Simulated assay, not measured.
Amino acid sequence: MNDFEKIFNEMGIDRALLPILFRSNRSTVHKYLSGESLAPASAMSLILLLQLLQKRSPELFAEWLTLSDFTIPPEIYLNQPDYWKGWKFTEHKVNKAVLQYLKDNVEKK
């Protein structure tokens, strides 16, 4: 098991979420997970940051996941902290894995 995969496994999230969180190509991210391709320092930094975010601020992690799923540009969401909460009104457009994560981790609160 490589370091990238180890951190991912510690996060306990669905594999389908990682490319969304990275706003990256699915095959590239899965090559990092499998060890087929060595994760660059930037990818290691990002997964460590995501892990920290998930543990320290689950709501902010869910916010980033939602904004990434909808590929919302920063000029829209930076001045509107609650913008991401609109996912509840557009569930039909949310990625299935993202929707499940939000329902399991955000709606409970």
Rank of each mutant, 00 (worst) to 15 (best):
Q54T: 03
V94Y: 09
L18Y: 05
P73V: 14
P40D: 07
F70A: 12
R56K: 13
K96S: 11
F8G: 00
R23H: 08
E91N: 14
L46P: 00
P58L: 05
L65A: 04
E10C: 04
K55T: 07
L50I: 09
F89V: 08
V29I: 14
L48N: 12
W84V: 03
Y77H: 13
N9L: 09
P58E: 05
K55M: 07
S27H: 05
E36S: 11
S24G: 07
L67F: 12
S57L: 07
F8N: 01
H92C: 08
W87R: 04
G35S: 08
V98L: 04
Y101K: 01
S37N: 06
L21G: 02
F22E: 04
N79L: 07
D82P: 00
L48T: 10
I72H: 00
F8P: 00
M44Q: 12
G12A: 07
N2P: 12
K88I: 10
K103T: 11
A62G: 08
M1W: 10
F22G: 05
N95Q: 13
R23G: 06
L18C: 03
E91K: 15
I72R: 01
E10P: 01
F70W: 11
L33P: 01
V98A: 02
G86H: 09
F89K: 11
E91F: 12
D14S: 12
S24I: 02
E59H: 10
Y83P: 02
L21M: 07
K93N: 10
W84Y: 08
S42R: 10
S42T: 10
V106M: 09
D82Q: 11
P74R: 10
P73D: 13
S34V: 03
L50N: 02
Q100A: 14
Q54G: 02
T28P: 02
L21D: 02
N95G: 07
V94N: 09
S57D: 15
A41K: 13
V29E: 00
S57A: 14
S34H: 08
V29W: 00
Q100D: 13
N9T: 06
P73K: 13
K55E: 13
H30G: 03
S68Y: 00
N2W: 08
A39Q: 06
L17H: 03
E5A: 14
P19M: 05
L48V: 04
V94K: 06
N105H: 14
Q54E: 10
L52H: 12
L50H: 01
Q80E: 15
K31D: 09
L99Q: 03
A62I: 04
E10G: 02
Q100C: 10
S37K: 08
P40C: 05
N9F: 06
K103S: 09
W84P: 00
N79W: 06
N9R: 13
S24T: 03
W64L: 13
E107Y: 08
T90C: 12
S42W: 09
S37P: 00
A41D: 11
T71I: 08
K31N: 13
F89A: 12
L21S: 01
E75R: 11
N95T: 08
R23T: 07
N9M: 10
N25C: 07
I13A: 04
K31A: 09
W64T: 07
L46W: 04
S68L: 00
E59S: 08
K96M: 08
K96Q: 14
S37W: 04
